[in-house]
Nucleic acid binder design. Structure first.
Length: 103
DNA sequence: TAATTGACCGGAG
DNA sequence: ACTCCGGCCAATT
């Protein structure tokens, strides 16, 4: 069994995101060569294979907000990790014009 | 096997 | 700024 190329690209791109930067689900899907499959990126991160150290916290929605309800554990964790890398939150949101990343 | 769900997105009202 | 809607398509029920 061979992991899909799409999945491989998503992992590679995710790993290529520098600390202190974020990218969106849709953007990641587009960079991986499959624009329109933002939900698949979400599905991949949701089901991360055990043992992977992917920086999932550097991925936010196209609005610049974490994909979790504000106040949830995952939300707070993601926010904390990003702030520790230098990303500034404006409320529950990140300014993609400043912190958004693309190769 | 069919229906539902979902770490999404962009446009419209 | 917010809600609603259609499109996307694999994993789950």
């Amino acid at each position: 069994m061979k992991t899909d190329d799409f999945t491989i690209r998503v992992y590679t791109l995710l790993h290529a995101i520098p600390a202190g930067r974020v990218t969106s689900y849709g953007g990641l899907a587009a960079m991986a060569g499959h624009a329109g499959r933002a939900r698949m990126v979400g599905a991949i991160l949701r089901r991360l294979p055990p043992g992977s150290h992917l920086p999932w916290h550097r991925v936010v929605t196209a609005s610049g907000k974490p994909a979790f309800p504000a106040g949830s554990d995952a939300f707070n964790q993601q926010k904390g990790l990003l702030e520790a890398e230098g990303v500034v939150f404006a409320g529950a949101r990140v300014n993609l014009k400043v912190f958004g990343w693309q190769p």
